[in-house]
Design a protein around this nucleic acid. Structure first.
Lengths: 176, 176
DNA sequence: CTTACAGTAGACAGATCTGTCTGGTACCGT
DNA sequence: ACGGTACCAGACAGATCTGTCTACTGTAAG
């Protein structure tokens, strides 16, 4: 991974997450990453290419972060929920990058939406497998609920609603 | 309400909801509403003005719709949840207009975000008051949960995830 | 009748956005 | 030494977006 490419991707990640995808132009990314325009288009064939790189990288990061959470079965779920609760009321939190991206890409067949769907499927499966590993009944239904509550916590946290975040965490813990 | 103004607002509502706010330009609204550009700027001083009109109108619509739901107390909550469950898996549903708008406006002090906050506060209060009217304990905490689950249902429905919607409705019903 | 207003049509300015292109520099492996 | 590659600086084209402006039409109230 060349230095310029990672600088572009890091800058795009920061700006896209903090300010939204459509509101941030490639010129802005180029300027803040201090690269030349030709260098940008050397590494990414279009802005959409950069957006997809941003989201897939975020997907990999989440996989590593949550998949590497301590404990097994419901303990892992609890650890993940604790982390989510902490992060979602912390500074700089602006909701889930995937849900925010989905809100900006209305077409469900758009590649961006595929990444979002992949992430949510992966999360649901992680919950279901963890529940099954601890021998919990109705793992599928509970996984659906944990996914929906995760969505709700991310939304509420992004809007600065700490009370709702807390209510969500309580409910999720009660479900497992 | 003049004919041209309502035609503009109706068109904007349809397009902003279905395709997003930043992706739809005023030229597009003007063309599909079949009004002249001068007429548009006669009724709305800027695009942002139109966006705010779109959201506040949607807010009033929701107030009328949910506030006028049949029943009192928890019965009204159940009626609202039933309606939400039905709508959120129906055709043309693309999530909550307020949450989608919030995802496009990152600045929490932006007027758009104020409308979003107002809507969520109003919804939370409606839940809390309904719970209290039926003498339910812990009305505040339960209202927080019902708000968060509503967010989750709207997100899941917008992404076409019917399983999660159902899980959300079950949980909400269990909470009341 | 005339004044005021809502409306139509469309040109225009100015900004911004994506993507291409030219031209030059620096390093790195063969 | 040399060819390839990554990089920088910035001009440029073409599209699009917001907002203003001119000029004209129909209509309803005083």
């Amino acid at each position: 991974m060349s230095s310029a490419r990672s600088r572009i991707l890091d800058t795009a990640t920061r700006l896209f997450y903090a300010e939204g995808i459509h509101t941030v132009g490639v010129d802005r990314v180029i300027a803040e990453a201090t690269v030349a325009k030709a260098t940008f288009y050397h590494h990414f064939k279009s802005k959409e290419d950069l957006v997809l790189a941003y989201l897939t990288t975020e997907y990999e990061r989440q996989k590593a972060l949550l998949g590497g959470a301590p404990g097994v079965g419901v303990e892992r779920i609890e650890a993940i929920l604790a982390k989510l609760a902490e992060v979602s009321v912390g500074p700089g939190f602006r909701g889930c990058p995937f849900l925010n991206a989905a809100a900006e890409y209305a077409d469900p067949d758009h590649p961006v939406r595929h990444v979002v769907d992949d992430y949510r499927s992966w999360y649901r499966d992680l919950m279901r497998d963890s529940l099954k590993a601890s021998g919990r009944p109705n793992a599928d239904q509970k996984a659906d609920l944990l996914l929906l509550v995760r969505d709700g916590i991310a939304v509420a946290g992004g809007l600065g609603d700490k009370d709702a975040v807390q209510a969500g965490v309580r409910t999720a813990l009660a479900a497992v």
